[in-house]
Structures are given as C-alpha cells and as structure tokens.
Design a protein around this nucleic acid. Sequence first.
DNA 1: GTGCGTGCAAACCGTTTGCAATCGG
DNA 2: CCGATTGCAAACGGTTTGCACGCAC
Lengths: 134, 134
Amino acid sequence: MKGKRNTLQKRIVTDVFCSMHNHPSAGMVFEAVQERFPGISRATVYRLLAEAAEEGRIQRLKLVDANDRYDITTGKHYHVTCRCCGAVADVKTEVDDGRLTDGAEGYEGFLIEGCHVEFVGICEGCRQKQENLN
Amino acid sequence: MKGKRNTLQKRIVTDVFCSMHNHPSAGMVFEAVQERFPGISRATVYRLLAEAAEEGRIQRLKLVDANDRYDITTGKHYHVTCRCCGAVADVKTEVDDGRLTDGAEGYEGFLIEGCHVEFVGICEGCRQKQENLN
DNA sequence: GTGCGTGCAAACCGTTTGCAATCGG
DNA sequence: CCGATTGCAAACGGTTTGCACGCAC
C-alpha cells in the first residue's frame, strides 16, 4: 500500500475543493483555502491538486486561453468558458468525438487520434452586466 | 493613413515567417529570424507577430496545452497537434461548428455562442520514431 | 525514528512592457 | 525633424522545484 499520509493540508484542500463547484483553477482553490487555513503554502495546494488529478480522484481540465481548471467530475464531458470573465461550466450536448475524429484527415502525414471540443459563450452574470449598459 | 513604417526588422520577420509552414510559435520565428539577423530583439519579433495578427494579416492560434502559434492562413480551419512533439498541422474536415454549438446547452445560465474544435494525433516523424523502438 | 509532506523562496517559461535610443518618412 | 519602432532588461503570471524542516505513522 502506498504510504500516503492523511495530512491536515490534504484534508482541507479536499474539503474546500469539494465545496466549490466552479471548476476552479489551482489559484482559486488556494485563495479559498487560505480563508480557512491562512498558513497553507501555495505550493502545497498546487501539489495536492496535481496529485489528486494524477491519481484520478479529480480531473485536470486543459482549456484554450485559460489556466488549467480542476473538475470534481472525472468522467468525460464538455465545458463552456465565459468570454468575458473566464468562468467555466459544464455543457449538456450530444457531441460524438469519434465521428469528428474519423471525419478528419491530417496534412503532412499526421495521424489524427482524437479531438478536443470546447464551447465559448457568456455566463449569466456577464450577460446581465451587458444588458444593464444598454 | 496609419503611420506604419517599413522597417528592416518587419521585412525580415515577414519574410522568415512566410517561409515557415509549420504554424510556428513566436519563439520559433524568433529563432529562425536570428539566423538571418542575429541582432534582432526577441521583443520585436513578438511585437511584429502580434501586430500582424491584430491587423488580420496572419492568424494567431490558441491551442490547448501549447503556446500560441501563428498561421499564414487567415481563414477559419482546423488543426491537429502532435501529442509527442507538439507540432501543428492543418486538418481537412467537415466539422459544422454551428451544429455543435446549437446542439449544446450550458448549465448555470450559460449562453453558448460558439465552439473550438482541435484535433490531437501524432506526426509522421514521431510515428516513425515509435516504430523504430519496436 | 523514518521518510513523506510541507513551507519557503527561487527558478521557470513564454510573453509583455517601460523606457531611452534610433531611424524611417 | 519627430514620432513610430527598436533593443534592452525588467516585470509579469501562473506554475514548478530544491531543499531543509517538521509531522504522520
């Protein structure tokens, strides 16, 4: 059995992360954690999140034009990013990755194996701010 | 009329970039430029490429898990990234962005406006290296 | 007691920026 | 001439890392 220790920091980071449902970045988790445990190190939060992702307990999302986000849902699904504030949310869709991939042909001898689909839009808050300007 | 000057640096960066067909990053263009003009500043290359993209003369590509790349083709099309070496190439496909976008529904009041599709695969060179190992 | 996990600070990497010097028009 | 453009170096932002200390087991 792996000699993983159950440290206070790990418990706090896990707790705080699980209470956030905004697909937070490591920095956002760090800020939230600081409120409950001001002494915690930024490096520790980054390390614990990366470790959790490597162990498959959470998912590390790579997004275009945004820092990596962490997702409590580990299964494959899609995301939308707010073009104003960068917020991230889940998306309900019927995208068929396999079909996209099969229908694509790479130039220059590239072999296509998969694809990444990501949506862009605007979140509720930013939409309301926009309307208030008019 | 815009007071744009035709400097030596601009001519060189444009020339070198146009002779590269690998969807290079700014850093890659800088390295290539240095061979012909060792005195050029990194900042200048970054600035000239960003400027060209803003003026629509070239396209700045945002990719997942890679630095921004520059593309001599300004029209919309798709790309594939090599999962081994990060090389980028164009993709021939029939993806219908509009259909993907229409078929998606965001949670938490998100309004979905568009989508980003990007392919992952393996380039010819890396494929051959892999085969040589077996 | 042992060695994993932490805190700290520095390194990292690609990119951007402030500023003085320079050069194109 | 004069202001756009350059070079330099420093700042940036998010992330990772080396190392000594300290705590979980």
